[in-house]
Design a protein around this nucleic acid. Structure first.
Lengths: 205, 205, 205, 205
DNA sequence: CATGAATGAGCGTTCATTCAT
DNA sequence: GATGAATGAACGCTCATTCAT
């Protein structure tokens, strides 16, 4: 009735920006386990420890709420990639860091992987999908650039860098799929070296 | 007040199995563009050219209808994989055929890729997901066996075949993602050789 | 396509218990004239002056709503009987008061007599019926006890009190039936003395 | 698909009048256990061993079907009463026979008692109710006449015969209620003498 | 600002009725 | 005549959204 504390780091009586964040955090947590359509505004409100009506003070509709969530998550991971780029040197280090970072992201967001990043979004999911696609495109482009660097460094043979980046992107996603959907047992981030090995040397004898 | 005249009972009377199929086909077509939750039974009925009530003569609920659809599609592609296995000889031929087949499937089902095969299914999506996971697991296992054959044939170096299969699976899915989500321009099936090359030789100089 | 503007959220905000009551009252009024199955939730909502959805804030299903109604009415009449028992002295006074009370109840609830108290309830009417049966059993048992008192007081000849109570119960119900179903013209409660006379003396010359 | 034998004495390939009867019999049997609204035309068709459409060859609507049933049952019992009247001599014999006949009817139609004869009929139940009321009125009037005879025979003291008949009617119904709704244990028809005794002598010491 | 009771459009499902076979 | 697949109007219930408090 007055002060509720529930879920992920939400506190009543904070600055409005924090309230907004706690709502998004609540939505994110619930989205780990349920569809957009199976999540009720009520659920988010309870998880965030606010009243249903309060959600509408921060987001005009349910849909916009989830779009905001997708956007913020996208920005966060994009920033992480940028930061990795800046902190690493070209070639193996940079690429392995990017691989590791992606594996880590999916490890931490198994549920979201099935929801936000696989299209479980409202009908005009194209809004959501575009964001998601842009993100995928961004990491592919970034890895393509890193691969070009690798070619210059004579690490890789000359290649169509975009396609090669797509290949690497898929390699990573393959392990994510296998891990999350099929319960093939391994720690996702532990696969960095294996992925790197296959990517570098292939399977040939 | 309580009893009203209903039903016009004017219709076409096709073969019953055909009717079931046409309903599933209608659902599949609509699913190319929309979510499970954004598809109304009405939509399916109209698309299939039947009345809403008719759907319920063939499927007890909306959910079961889509589960049937997922099941049938899964069976179809699984049979295709089996048939490929039987018609090809071990090693390169068999693996390239499996790669090609997967690329072709996604090329023909771009929309579904985003829906049925990526989890856009009802709340108990776990039913759907399990099916999907089983399918993924099946193709990975099949490719793992083919890779073991390849190792015996001295085509590949010794390896943990399951992980290597996951890598190949990912390689394929990477191109699918890139093509479908990011509009990276290429004919999906044209990438068979490139995928095979990367898988075999890696990117190393 | 998937998300539309809904809800107008304009209303009155009475006390919550009052709202629940007014819904039950609306249901009771409509039930005077119509079957459970011929009453639509919409009807009740309109009669109660609330929106359809509001009904579901107070009762989880249509069926539960009517069960609540039956329960409340049963409790009310049972309490009345208890209160009569306490306020009257054994013998004629007590029994005549019980007779009068039953006649009065049916006089005031002619329509319900045909509905709630005669089994016009949902499929699992057994729930409803059990309640009703319990109520009937309760009044029969109560009258049986009063008759035993009467035997002790030498008012009645020795008898199987339960069967005699059933006879008295039937005598009362006979007038109710005749009045309500056949429009035999008399004021129901005016028959108290006649019923008492027949019960006491029989029809014999 | 071709010849089905189900339920109460129904045979395919009979005269149309027999088909009509078997449908009504099926409806009657089902009505013993279920409400008008909980009975589907399909149920009746299966029970009668005919196709759903066939019902509509004999009855224009579901409602008319049940009205026909009510009418036929009413006629049957009315004829029984008439026949009793004709076969018995005035006074005790005639009245006890009427009492016995009513108890027997309810004993044989416990389920219907809860359905047809207590108002579980469609919205315009007034059609049904009128029939039922007429029937009740008929037996009351008949008993009133018998009571008048009894007065002439000096069996009964002078009285308002209609009201006295209502009392007797109620006495009978009381035992029916108690037996069917409350499981008070006795064979219904065994109560004839007790009812007669109470009706004649009352409960007085 | 925050609340949560109230709203009502919308959808899944049922089943009396029809009519091509 | 008999059949039963097909029909579609109708209704119970949900839940995003609103706004009086």
């Amino acid at each position: 009735m007055s002060i509720k504390k529930k879920g992920s780091g939400c506190f009543s009586r904070r600055a409005p920006e924090e309230r907004r964040s706690s709502i998004l955090a609540a939505a994110r947590d619930i989205l780990q386990a349920r569809n957009f359509h199976d999540i009720k505004m009520e659920n988010i409100a309870v998880q965030a420890g606010v009243a249903k009506g309060t959600l509408y003070l921060y987001f005009p509709t349910k849909e916009k709420l989830f779009q905001s969530l997708a956007k913020e998550m996208g920005q966060k991971i994009f920033q992480e990639w940028q930061s990795i780029w800046e902190k690493t040197s070209p070639g193996e280090e940079r690429l392995k860091a990017l691989i590791f970072s992606q594996l880590k992201f999916f490890d931490e967001n198994k549920g979201l992987f099935l929801q936000v990043f696989q299209g479980n979004l409202p009908a005009n999911a194209m809004g959501g999908l575009k964001k998601k696609s842009e993100l995928i495109r961004a990491v592919i482009d970034m890895m393509a650039k890193a691969i070009e660097e690798g070619v210059h460094l004579q690490l890789f043979r000359p290649c169509e860098s975009l396609h090669t980046a797509v290949a690497l992107f898929g390699l990573i996603r393959g392990f994510v799929f296998a891990r999350i959907l099929c319960d093939i047992p391994y720690q996702l981030t532990d696969q960095t070296d294996f992925i790197w090995d296959v990517f570098l040397n292939g399977a040939k004898k």
